[in-house]
C-alpha cells in the first residue's frame, strides 16, 4: 500500500471520525511496530464484540500487532467467533464462507502475484479450529499440497463457540460439549504434524500468554510463506464462555494446560526456511 493513500484530504479533515484520523496519524502502517509497542499506537483491531476473557481476542490483537507488513497484508477469515472480530480490523479482510478460507486465499494470493509481481502482498488466513480442522480441512490441506504461498493460523479454542459450544475435532478426548453429550470419543487431532507432512515449510504452536514468542512465530510464518511455501501456526486460545471459565482465568488456564502438556509449544523449520530466516534475522536479537 502507498501510505499516501490513507492520508486524509484536507477538505475532509473536519468530517472524518477521530478514530480514522488516529489510524492515519498513529496507526501501524509502515512503522514496523511489534507487540512491545502495544499501547503506544492505534491498533488495527478495536471495539470487537468477542466475550470478556476470550483467548481469540487476545491472540488476534497479538497477531495483528506482529504482522511484518500490515500495509500490504490481506487477511482471509472464516465463519466463527473470529469472523465477528474481523469486521473491526482496519485491513482488507475477507469472510467468504465457512471452511473455504484456504481456497479463497489461494485464488487471492495467485491473483495478487499477477497484479503486483514486484510487490509484497502477504495473504494470512486466520480461522478457528472448526473451520480449519473440520469443515475446511480438505481445502486447508490441499493448499499445503499445492505449496501455496500463504500463512494459515488456526485459533484453537477446542470448540464451535459461535454456534453455542459444540465439540470439534480439536476438542480434547472425553470432554463433554454439545453434540458430544457422552464425551468426545476420539483424541484431539494433531494438525501440526499433519501440516509438516503435508508440505508446510514452517510449523509452530504457541499460546497468547507468550506474546514475544507469538510475535516471532507469526513473523517467521509470514516471511517463510512469502518466500518459500505454506506455513502453519496453531494458537491455543481458550473459550471462557463455552468451557465455563471466569474471564480472568484465561491466562492461568493456558499456563496449567502448558504444564500438563496439552498446550505444547513447538517449532518446525524446514531447511530452506531455516536458511531464509537466518538471513532475514541475521543473528541479531529478534525478540523485539
Amino acid at each position: 500500500m502507498n501510505n499516501g493513500l490513507i492520508k486524509i484530504s484536507p477538505c475532509f479533515e473536519d468530517v472524518m471520525p477521530q478514530e480514522y484520523k488516529d489510524l492515519v496519524e498513529q496507526g501501524s502502517f509502515g512503522k514496523n511496530f511489534g507487540v512491545s509497542d502495544l499501547g503506544s499506537f492505534k491498533e488495527l483491531i478495536e471495539e470487537h464484540p468477542l466475550c470478556a476473557g476470550c483467548g481469540l481476542a487476545l491472540s488476534m490483537r497479538l497477531i495483528l500487532a506482529s504482522l511484518p507488513n500490515p500495509e500490504n497484508t490481506i487477511i482471509v477469515g472464516s465463519t466463527g467467533c473470529s469472523a465477528l472480530a474481523f469486521s473491526q480490523v482496519a485491513l482488507h479482510n475477507i469472510h467468504s464462507l465457512f471452511g473455504n478460507q484456504n481456497a479463497v486465499a489461494t485464488g487471492l494470493k495467485r491473483a495478487l502475484k499477477l497484479r503486483f509481481p514486484n510487490e509484497i502482498k502477504d495473504v494470512v488466513v486466520v480461522a478457528g479450529d472448526g473451520a480449519t480442522a473440520d469443515i475446511g480441512l480438505d481445502m486447508v490441506m490441499q493448499s499445503w499440497f499445492r505449496r501455496e504461498n500463504i500463512t494459515t493460523i488456526m485459533l484453537d479454542n477446542e470448540a464451535y463457540a459461535n454456534t453455542g459450544g459444540q465439540e470439534s475435532g480439536m476438542t480434547m478426548e472425553k470432554a463433554v460439549l454439545n453434540m458430544a453429550p457422552k464425551g468426545k470419543n476420539f483424541p484431539k487431532v494433531n494438525l501440526a504434524d499433519v501440516a509438516r507432512v503435508a508440505g508446510c515449510a514452517y510449523v509452530a504452536t504457541c499460546n497468547p500468554a507468550k506474546p514475544r514468542m507469538l510475535e516471532k512465530i507469526v513473523r517467521r510464518a509470514v516471511f517463510t510463506a512469502r518466500e518459500i511455501g505454506p506455513t502453519y501456526v496453531q494458537i491455543y486460545a481458550p473459550c471462557p464462555t463455552n468451557y465455563k471459565l471466569k474471564p480472568d482465568e484465561m491466562l492461568n488456564t493456558i499456563k496449567t494446560r502448558e504444564k500438563d502438556g496439552t498446550y505444547p509449544t513447538s517449532e518446525y523449520i524446514s531447511s530452506s526456511a531455516k536458511e531464509l530466516l537466518e538471513r532475514l534475522e541475521g543473528g541479531t536479537n529478534n525478540e523485539k
Binding site: 482471509v76 475477507i94 464462507l97 481456497a103 479463497v104 485464488g107 487471492l108 495467485r110 491473483a111 490441499q142
Partner: peptide, 19 residues
C-alpha cells in the same frame, strides 16, 4: 482445484483480488 466448492472459492479469492 480440489473440488467444485473449492474451485468456486478459489475463483472468489482471485476475483476479489481484481483479476
Amino acid at each position: 482445484g480440489e473440488n467444485e466448492f473449492a474451485v468456486m472459492s478459489e475463483i472468489t479469492g482471485a476475483a476479489m483480488a481484481g483479476v
